[in-house]
Design a protein around this nucleic acid. Structure first.
Length: 492
RNA sequence: GGCGCGUUGGUGUAACUGGUUAACACGCCGCCCUCUCAAGGCGGAGAGCACGGGUUCGAGUCCCGUACGCGCUACCA
């Protein structure tokens, strides 16, 4: 079978995490099966739609590296087809006109009564049985009506979901849903089905919130004489506490752009997202290539995934596992791929210098290679890594680090400048020569090398953690090292 | 309210068609390395599988009920 899947977001202006994950699973399945990935914008809700809002979605997909073979199609471009389908349903008796005045339906009191009646599973819509001729005549006379699907009285709807298994629902539980509004605009359930038929979709992979809708949609497929596709419903992504994850409640954290802006490597976030609802066999960190090899739709979980983060806690502003995952990518990805990403961050932070991709091109690569070992976000390079990229003393010294490494021993007030002079006199300035000089100086002064080494770390970086000291010195270079050692003495 | 789906350590999950001391990852804690660590290496604590019944020689795995969560129940998508 020719696999054709679609990702069908509504144009909200940004790519929601949940939507992104849906897109990812569609994409993986399409690519794995050698099928076709289609992007369709569900903009039937006209007010919400605009160019800009669509762009936000596409940008998010591009960042994640999710491409598509067809589209973007716009649902609103197919309204004529939707209406035509409604006419066919009306003609073959699968649908009927409901002339209940709109105001009456909108009335809260009546709404309650109607739902109360529906609750008791009692009466069907009376307009269901209006003779066809009278129905036509009223419509022709200009009386407004909504078109409803004629759901069978008895029996049940059954389908096999690839993920959730056999689904059965009694027809008596399914209301005669509206297909077209009284203003002539087709409604969601009708539109998706018609579009999926015309786009020859073979597998509908979407959120579990549509699981119940599927019974209705299958009825529409049948009414239209079409064979329904395969369905695979994905578990939802919930916020901590198993509550719904929403932009309103949780803010920027649900938008993919947040992750782009806060230092995530696209592949890493893609990998993390894939874990929300699926466990790959043999390890959670895996390349896309590997995903395509081992992915199985029916291995997706049934229970909702929880996106774990602590509101207000800067340490875990997002799922700690996502941050860990990102660190794994930063450590393991080819350096040539990492350098441009870090370059972007340095530019954005105003730390970029022209010779970084000229004379100091190699130096930049070495510095990134050194720092990547302990960084987990791309933004760590301009923030934590600032002392490595600025020429001057324009970086801050952590107070705790000053206490711990500089003020620990008053002798450092004298030793640091002393070390600076030894270094200033050094001809060749490398890892080896600087280490030898430092150890020699420490021996002469009768102090432990570690005292000088740790003091130097704080002097050069303002921090008490970081790479091996002589690696740092080699990266900092002769001039900055001497300057910073001298300067540090003034802090004691 | 009705209907549907789900419920394994703090989190994400594993455990083939019921059968060893419930496994892995993140996080947490400790130790080691050592010039430091938010790096690396090693180890540890933490669930008896939502709860209550039942079937069975034996159940996280099957059945029933309860609780909780989520979803659907619009002339929204």
């Amino acid at each position: 079978m020719n696999v054709r899947v679609r990702f069908a977001p509504s144009p909200t202006g940004y790519l929601h995490m949940g939507s992104a994950r849906t897109a990812i699973f569609n994409w993986i399945y399409a690519r794995q099966q050698g099928g076709t990935m289609i992007l369709r914008i569900e903009d039937t809700d006209m007010q919400r739609s605009s160019e800009e809002m669509v762009r936000g979605i596409i940008e998010g997909m591009e960042w994640l590296g999710i491409d598509y073979d067809e589209g973007p199609y716009f649902q609103s471009d197919y309204i004529d087809k939707h209406r035509e389908a409604v006419d066919r349903l009306l003609a073959n008796g699968q649908a009927y006109r409901d002339f209940t005045p709109k105001e009456e339906r909108d009335d809260a009191m009546i709404k309650r009564q109607v739902s109360e009646a529906a609750r008791q599973g009692k009466e069907r819509n009376p307009w269901r049985d209006l003779p066809v001729e009278e129905s036509k005549a009223r419509a022709a006379a200009g009386e407004p009506f909504v078109v409803r699907l004629r759901v069978p009285e008895a029996g049940s709807s059954v389908f096999e979901d690839i993920i959730y298994g056999r689904q059965e629902r009694d027809f008596s539980e399914i209301e005669d849903l509206a297909l077209m509004r009284s203003d002539g605009y087709p409604l969601y359930n009708l539109s998706v089905v018609v579009d999926d038929i015309t786009m020859r979709i073979s597998h509908v992979i979407r959120g579990q919130d549509h699981l119940m809708n599927t019974h209705k949609q299958i009825l529409i497929y049948r009414g239209l004489g079409a064979e329904p596709p395969q369905f695979a419903h994905l578990p939802l992504i919930l916020a901590p506490g198993r509550e719904k994850l929403s932009k309103r409640r949780h803010g920027e954290i649900v938008s993919i752009t947040t992750y782009r802006d806060r230092g995530f490597v696209p592949e890493a976030f893609f990998n993390f997202l894939v874990l929300l609802g699926w466990t790959p066999p043999g390890g959670e960190v895996l390349s896309r290539q590997r995903m395509l090899e081992v992915f199985r739709l029916d291995a997706i979980h049934k229970s909702n995934a929880i996106f774990n983060f602590a509101e207000g806690d800067p340490q875990s502003w997002t799922d700690p596992k996502a941050i860990w995952m990102n660190g794994e990518y930063i450590k393991a990805m080819p350096l040539d791929d990492l350098v441009p990403l870090v370059t972007g961050e340095l530019r954005r932070a105003g730390l970029w210098q022209d010779d970084f991709d000229g004379n100091r091109r190699e130096w930049l690569a070495q510095t990134i290679a050194l720092l990547r070992e302990r960084y987990r976000l791309l933004t760590d390079f301009p923030t934590l890594g600032r002392p490595y990229f600025v020429e001057s003393l324009d970086f801050s010294y952590e107070q705790a680090s000053i206490e711990k490494n500089l003020r620990k021993d008053p002798a450092l007030k004298r030793l640091l400048p002393g070390l600076a002079e030894r270094y200033a006199a050094l001809g060749e300035f490398t890892h080896q020569t600087t280490e030898a000089a430092l150890r020699e100086y420490a021996a002469e002064e009768g102090v432990k090398a570690g005292l000088l080494i740790n003091a130097a770390r704080t002097a050069l970086t303002g921090q008490s953690v970081g790479p091996g000291m002589f690696d740092i010195i080699a990266i900092m270079g002769h001039v900055r090292t001497v300057e910073r050692l001298r300067h540090a003495a003034t802090l004691i």
